[in-house]
């Protein structure tokens, strides 16, 4: 099991403790309110993700062959979901990120609430995360 899969499983386990959507969303809201490691200088159009109704800025860095992601959103719920994504993808190798399957969103029952309408940029966020990983992989040779 890769550590991307391991973190996903942990999230699924944690969220399965909640019995209704309100608890689940309250958890996401709490996550969304947490302080995050995001340099506001990256709040520029070129780091903005398309397709989100709420604004999402995302950038990535590489430390010793691992990639870290940093993101911010003006909406709390979106920020909570970003926090989950960052938990899953940060500090992983580009290969693990590129090859990962993302089934945890489905398993935690968020897919039906955050469907792929134009209101939601979740898919765009994941795509951008993978694009960063591909970029770092190529750069590393």
């Amino acid at each position: 099991m890769t550590s991307v899969e391991k973190t996903q499983n942990e999230i699924v386990e944690e969220l399965s403790l909640f019995t209704d959507w309100i608890e689940k969303y309250e958890y996401l809201i709490e996550l969304g309110k947490d302080e995050i490691d995001f340099d506001k200088r990256f709040m520029k159009d070129e780091f903005l993700i398309n397709g989100c109704q709420s604004k999402v800025w995302l950038y990535a860095k590489q430390n010793n062959s691992k990639v870290t992601f940093h993101a911010y959103s003006d909406a709390i719920m979106t920020k909570g979901i970003i926090a989950l994504l960052i938990k899953v993808f940060s500090n992983q190798s580009p290969d693990d990120i590129i090859n990962s399957k993302l089934d945890f969103i489905d398993k935690i029952g968020l897919k039906s609430h955050l469907s792929a309408t134009r209101a939601n940029g979740l898919m765009s966020m994941i795509k951008q995360i993978k694009i960063y990983a591909i970029g770092f992989k190529e750069k590393n040779g």
Partner: peptide
């Protein structure tokens, strides 16, 4: 509040509104 946050929560309560 961000309109999107409110819209998502209302949706879960069965209310269809437009946000954006």
């Amino acid at each position: 509040a961000h309109h999107y946050d409110i819209g998502v929560l209302l949706d879960n309560m069965g209310i269809a509104v437009r946000t954006g």
